[in-house]
């Protein structure tokens, strides 16, 4: 799965957690989930769990703490998704 495909999937996953729909429509790799999309930090864990379910991956503590921009999220999902075996 390439980065653009993951970004497009991320838009759907983030949609229920942000009121900034215009910003969401134009997200890019530097978009900050808290500062730009105004996502409540308590919802970040929900987003991580949904990403785990969607991609059938497990995101550990250290990885989760790096998911504060869209680009970071794509890095983590892509690394896990493309992990062999």
């Amino acid at each position: 799965m390439d980065r653009i495909a993951i970004l497009n999937e991320l838009k759907k996953l983030l949609a229920p957690y942000t009121e900034k729909k215009e910003m969401l429509a134009n997200i890019h790799e530097d978009t900050d989930l808290v500062k730009d999309l105004k996502i409540n930090s308590a919802n970040l864990v929900d987003i991580i769990i949904e990403a785990e379910s969607k991609y059938k991956i497990e995101i550990d503590f250290d990885m989760a703490s790096k998911m504060y921009t869209v680009g970071n999220c794509i890095d983590v999902i892509s690394a896990k998704f493309n992990q062999p075996g």
Binding site: A42, N43, V45, D46, I48, I49, E52, F61, A64
Partner: peptide
Amino acid sequence: PNRGRALDERFYSKF
């Protein structure tokens, strides 16, 4: 609405 997830181990074990 999402606060009901608190008792899900996948949730609280993240932090």
